[in-house]
């Protein structure tokens, strides 16, 4: 079940302008980069990106930047505070008529899960709490990717990272609900595999003033251990297995923008990735895999209940 499209019916309707030039040093097949590119197309002109330490910091390496829009690299812990300073300064200049309205910018924080779920959360929580009018894109690749893929608070249960070589027993922090608890006007999960869903969400949020927060599953060939040619396939499987639900919360009200009719087994998603390989070989960790599947099933059962929708056929 997909929600009714309001703005874009097909790929052809999506804005075709490019705001990122090629030539960045990010990994081939980077899911985070695709997400940023797609989101920027809908945001359009006049954007300043406030960046946190993470993979995307490498987008702009002196003297080159692929972004045709503006960029400010801050720190790992305070991009949302940088956004506050920028937004406030622009508002003050507008109010004092020291800047023309044409010079105004939309402020977009760009942060990975390392910053978003951990070090940067205090500054972001405060910015949401103050009702700062800004966009936030978390490219969540479920670990500290830029330093070589170490465990983060976004790493899913069972996944191996450079600092959880046998697979972590911690579960992924629910940042969507943490954000939603702040009651911002808009929160959404997105995936580059569903560019129309993503564009619809950005477009919907555009009419809103205040924090507009996007959590993207950024598939990561380098860290997750799969051939970059499979980037879109992995992103698709994350959605079809129900591991990555597509949803939004408008003024706190959650709705899923896609509810699969039938969930594919999570194994199909996990087995393609090196970070879950230890669950399959040399011995099959059946109980662990069953547990992961159960967690997904429980989630979708509760979604069906809460939204009065038809429950997907469980795997």
């Amino acid at each position: 079940m997909k929600v009714k499209r309001e703005f874009y019916r097909s790929f052809k309707d999506l804005p075709s302008e490019e705001y990122l030039s090629p030539g960045s040093p990010l990994c081939a097949g980077c899911g985070g980069l695709t997400t940023l590119r797609q989101m920027h197309k809908v945001l359009g002109d006049n954007v300043v990106i406030v960046d946190a330490a993470g993979c995307m910091t490498l987008l702009a390496i002196y003297p080159f930047t692929p972004l045709r829009s503006s960029w400010l690299y801050t720190t790992m812990g305070s991009p949302s505070a940088g956004a506050q300073g920028l937004r406030d300064a622009l508002d003050v200049l507008l109010a004092k008529h020291r800047m023309s309205a044409d010079d105004n910018l939309q402020v977009l924080v760009l942060a990975g899960d390392g910053s978003t779920y951990g070090m940067g959360l205090s500054a972001t929580s405060a910015a949401i709490h103050r009702g700062l009018d800004f966009w936030y894109l978390c490219y969540d690749n479920e670990a500290y990717g830029n330093t070589g893929f170490q465990l983060s608070e976004a790493s899913p249960f069972g996944s191996a990272t450079a600092t959880s070589p046998q697979g972590t027993q911690q579960t992924k922090k629910n940042i969507f609900e943490i954000w939603r608890a702040h009651q911002p006007p808009y929160v959404a999960t997105v995936s580059a595999h569903e560019p129309i869903d993503l564009a619809e969400k950005v477009r919907r949020a555009m009419t809103m003033t205040g924090p507009k927060l996007f959590l993207a599953l950024a598939v990561c060939p380098t860290g997750w251990g799969f051939d970059p040619a499979l980037s879109d396939e992995i992103a698709r499987l994350a959605i079809e297995t129900g591991v990555w639900p597509l949803k939004e919360a408008i003024a706190g009200q959650v709705r899923h923008t896609y509810i699969p009719r039938r969930l594919r087994p999570v194994r199909e998603y996990l087995k393609l990735q090196r970070r879950f390989r230890h669950l399959f070989q040399p011995t099959l960790w059946g109980e662990t895999l069953t547990y992961i599947q159960e967690q997904v099933n429980i989630y979708w059962q509760s979604v069906a209940k809460a939204e009065g929708a038809k429950q997907p056929t469980l795997a």
């Binding site: 406030v50 949302s80 505070a81 940088g82 300073g85 920028l86 406030d88 200049l93 500054a123 405060a126």
Partner: peptide, 21 residues
């Protein structure tokens, strides 16, 4: 505006100064 820490406060201050206020 009250920030959540001095680290955030200085980042906001720098970003604002870099925007011309």
């Amino acid at each position: 505006v009250t920030l959540d820490s001095e680290h955030a406060m200085m980042t906001a201050a720098g970003a604002a100064a870099a925007t011309g206020v």
